[in-house]
Computed example of a mutant assay.
Amino acid sequence: MNQDYYKNYYHLERNHWWFVVRLEILKQELQKIAVLEKKSKRKILNIGIATGKTSEMLSQFGEVTSVEYDAVCAEFVRQKLNIEVIEGSILELSFEENSFDWVCAFDVIEHVKDDKKAISEMNRVCRNKGKVCITVPAFQSLWSHHDEINQHFKRYKMNEILNLFDLQSENIDNTSSFKILRKTYFNSFLFVPIWLFRKLNFLIPQQFIRKGSGSDFEIYKENRFLDSILKGIFRAEKKILQKNISFSFGVSLLFFIEKQKYRD
């Protein structure tokens, strides 16, 4: 990737309806955890920071260590935001065991083939009673050109995430390594139109509907009216999530757990 791509992505992360409201939802759900913890200071690891907007948000909750796999992206963020970014992979984190209070990877797991190893590494560097927080794209039926452009390996269902954490049953006993704090799909109200759009995509030559990087994000960014409507719909969903109501389907999936103990 080049600097022009990251300049464009930087704008998307701060203006596009999906990025804007997703960040609001993440902050809202993390705030619930922060209130229960009653901590004034915490060490936070943010893996796969892209152009840094999630690290900016997380800095409201503690001291953030930012990790990014792509060297060009890491350098772009250093220059743009004047923050330290460590180049590294979620599959081989360069930190000791039990180093962080929160370990976050927002839309990162789907980018690695060995997702089990990624979760194991997040667990390893998380402290006992610390939190592991992830989001991933949901449902393989939504697979499209957007996933291919963004180098995804797969999309997930909730039971697959439970399996990654060895939490196959919702009735987890006291010997489990994790306690589930929050699990829900989100971007649910727009699931059907997005599903239809992506299915129709296979029938239309991509050059007629996609520009720039070719991802779905490029399609909406110039249409302010549509962007405003989509933000409104997504924010209505945010209000429901605020009440700790969970959705049984959606375009994305959110999963927050508390580490009980480390288990090989």
Rank of each mutant, 00 (worst) to 15 (best):
I194C: 08
I194R: 06
I194K: 05
I194H: 08
I194Y: 09
I194V: 11
W195F: 15
W195T: 06
W195I: 05
W195N: 07
W195K: 10
W195H: 13
L196S: 09
L196E: 11
L196P: 15
L196C: 13
L196K: 09
L196Y: 13
L196V: 14
L196Q: 08
F197K: 00
F197E: 01
F197L: 04
F197C: 04
F197T: 08
F197W: 02
R198N: 11
R198G: 12
R198E: 10
K199P: 10
K199S: 11
K199D: 04
K199L: 07
K199H: 12
L200K: 13
L200M: 15
L200H: 08
L200S: 13
L200E: 10
L200W: 12
L200V: 09
N201L: 04
N201C: 13
N201D: 08
N201Q: 15
F202D: 06
F202L: 09
F202V: 09
F202Q: 06
F202P: 03
F202Y: 12
F202S: 11
L203P: 09
L203M: 15
L203S: 10
L203C: 13
I204R: 01
I204V: 04
I204N: 03
I204F: 11
I204Q: 07
I204T: 09
I204L: 06
I204D: 03
I204K: 03
P205M: 03
P205S: 08
P205E: 04
P205F: 05
Q206I: 02
Q206H: 14
Q206N: 12
Q206K: 14
Q206A: 06
Q206C: 03
Q207S: 13
Q207H: 15
Q207K: 15
Q207L: 05
F208Q: 11
F208W: 14
I209K: 00
I209Y: 08
I209F: 13
I209H: 02
I209G: 05
R210E: 05
R210C: 03
R210L: 12
R210D: 03
R210M: 09
R210A: 05
R210S: 01
R210Y: 15
K211Q: 12
K211N: 13
K211T: 15
K211F: 12
K211Y: 14
K211V: 14
G212M: 07
G212W: 01
G212Q: 08
G212H: 04
G212Y: 02
G212K: 02
S213Y: 01
S213P: 08
S213V: 04
S213H: 01
S213W: 12
S213F: 00
S213T: 06
S213E: 02
G214C: 13
G214F: 02
G214E: 04
G214N: 09
G214Q: 09
S215H: 09
S215E: 09
S215V: 12
S215C: 05
S215P: 11
S215Q: 07
D216Y: 02
F217W: 04
F217N: 00
F217P: 01
E218R: 02
E218Q: 01
E218D: 04
E218C: 00
E218F: 01
I219D: 05
I219V: 15
I219G: 05
I219Q: 01
I219H: 00
Y220D: 04
Y220V: 00
Y220I: 02
Y220L: 01
Y220W: 04
Y220N: 07
Y220M: 08
K221H: 12
K221N: 14
K221E: 15
K221Y: 12
K221D: 14
E222C: 07
E222G: 07
E222T: 13
E222F: 06
E222M: 06
N223C: 10
R224F: 14
R224S: 15
R224D: 15
